[in-house]
């Protein structure tokens, strides 16, 4: 997939496309440039509006959708990381061709490595925790799908990960039921690729997901019981879909 780094302003034909998204972004040269890149089929673009001090990360495939719009001061962190992961998940290569872009990407990658919560929120496939998720070579940076680390028990996994944090919990995407452990093996269930850090407590994302799995669907059976009959991959995909549907940015 192509990738573009588009510095500076692009006027004219793309101006109206950016402007129609709202006055708040109209006139920002870097965003124009990013939208231009998106319109040209660029998969992932980072543009810097030098004149205004705003940066925008654009998802090229969904032209017209602003995934990030923030000031420079708030740019580094999950604001960049989330849409960046989306692009990586879809196989985009991300290449920075300027010092400014390299700096932004480095900070974003560091954020991703240190903030596991950034992963499930994109509703994507890989949710590994810890360094090694990203593979960089001369052609750019991609997710490293081979990155996995399994343990014999939940306790060992949590010892490796550390505490979930106050008001948070480690959540297995494929549930850690005895039946699943017996079918798929402990190391596949208690694996950093199968766990995410979620808000926990009344009304939290974690509780909503647990509540949904316990709910009774038409016909009488509980979602959890139906899911238990499926393959690991099906359970994983269903778990990611559930995360994505309950997540509210």
């Amino acid at each position: 997939m192509a990738l573009g780094w588009v510095p500076g302003a692009v006027e004219g034909k793309i101006g109206f496309k950016a402007a129609r998204l709202g006055g708040k972004i109209a006139g920002k040269a870097g965003q124009y440039a990013a939208y231009y890149a998106a319109g040209e089929g660029v998969e992932f673009a980072i543009a810097t509006g030098v004149e205004t001090g705003y940066e925008t990360l654009i998802n090229g495939r969904d032209f017209g959708e602003t995934l990030l719009q923030t000031s420079v001061g708030n740019l580094i962190g999950q604001g960049v990381a989330r849409p960046l992961i989306k692009g990586l998940e879809r196989g985009a290569k991300v290449i920075a061709r300027s010092d400014a872009a390299k700096s932004i990407l480095k900070d974003a990658y560091d954020y991703i490595d240190n903030h596991p919560l950034a992963w499930p929120l994109t509703g994507v496939r890989f949710h590994a925790v810890g360094r090694g998720r990203l593979h960089t070579d001369g052609r750019g940076t991609r997710l490293n799908p081979a990155f996995q680390k399994g343990f014999d028990s939940h306790r060992e996994l949590v010892e490796y990960l550390g505490p979930a944090g106050k008001g948070r919990a480690w959540h297995h995407i494929v549930e850690q039921t005895p039946a699943n452990v017996a079918r798929f093996g402990a190391r596949r269930i208690h694996n950093i690729a199968n766990i995410v850090n979620l808000p926990h407590g009344a009304g939290s994302l974690h509780n909503k997901i647990s509540g949904f799995y316990s709910s009774r669907a038409p016909g009488g059976g509980r979602i959890r019981d139906w899911l238990a009959t499926k393959s690991f991959q099906k359970q994983y995909d269903f778990g990611v879909q559930t995360l994505g549907r309950f997540y509210e940015p």
């Binding site: 059976g221 269903f238 549907r245």
Partner: peptide, 23 residues
């Protein structure tokens, strides 16, 4: 649908096709 009820619908259809919905 983008709602989580879409997943309930998927489960229901799957169970129906397997003959488990007998209303």
């Amino acid at each position: 649908s983008p709602s989580v009820l879409a997943l309930t619908a998927q489960v229901t259809l799957d169970r129906w096709k397997q003959g488990y919905i007998t209303y």
